[in-house]
Design a protein around this nucleic acid. Sequence first.
DNA 1: CTTGACTCTCCACCTAGGGGAGAGTGCATC
DNA 2: GATGCACTCTCCCCTAGGTGGAGAGTCAAG
Lengths: 142, 142
Amino acid sequence: MESQVALAQTLKIGEVANRSGLTVKTIRFYCDEGLIRPISRSDGGYRLFADGVFSELALIRTLRAMEIPLPDVRQILEARRSGVCTCTDLKARIRSKAGEIGDRITAMQNLQSELFALLNSWEACGGRTPAAAAPELVGANR
Amino acid sequence: MESQVALAQTLKIGEVANRSGLTVKTIRFYCDEGLIRPISRSDGGYRLFADGVFSELALIRTLRAMEIPLPDVRQILEARRSGVCTCTDLKARIRSKAGEIGDRITAMQNLQSELFALLNSWEACGGRTPAAAAPELVGANR
DNA sequence: CTTGACTCTCCACCTAGGGGAGAGTGCATC
DNA sequence: GATGCACTCTCCCCTAGGTGGAGAGTCAAG
């Protein structure tokens, strides 16, 4: 045992999962992929995590919400961990991703208006417009 | 070539790919999944398509851009092909999907402003150690 | 007939995880 | 010490929507 007297509390994977809201499977997967690392293993081989894992998982969540691929996320986390200032790099990435997201928003807006145009064109299509009667949406879809 | 009867013109997969902008692989895949069907096969087994495939592929593209899963796309195409008026159903689906897209646009806009907030908070870290920077991103996500 | 481009089928791989099997561990209780 | 139960381990297969390659066969021009 290490002499980590102060706050030597370690967490097993289930507790990390519960607190982070991720699944045990996912956390194990992130370990396998090298995104996070347990500070040690128990004698029986259980992964043991420190509190710091939660901020890393939160960062992973944010980055994943931007659809940054896992290898990139890993890189960012490694740099962050190493103490090297990744601000410039990270910020550049995020800025670029934010730009991409902007593009995607535009694309989706275009798609949406395309869809409405499509709906209108179908109104006039051959198949006997059913919208003459109340165009209630059947939305029970899904 | 000019003496050929224009009506009987069939297209091999490569030409369909070129004209539609999809890859040969993808078209083959759509055939395998039953989304489209070659009108026949050559003696050697080549898939032969009719012109009508392009409108189907265009529809597939639009639907896929909405992330409608392939089984649903297949259903829509089958109904369309069968002559049954799918306007009501299809339009309901599309309307519902358009709504979802609207939600996603909103989510993305939220994510984007979150990101800009994140960038600003990092601006304040002054280019030093990035560890434990921007703790507010932790809960803000999701 | 030969050549080269095209196409065929089959299988493996990708991302980001999820499901489950079968075996082992940690801890409280008897 | 023994038992019971929850937890965890590794390993393998599965998903969607394709992509890539291997090896074999086909088509059309020269």
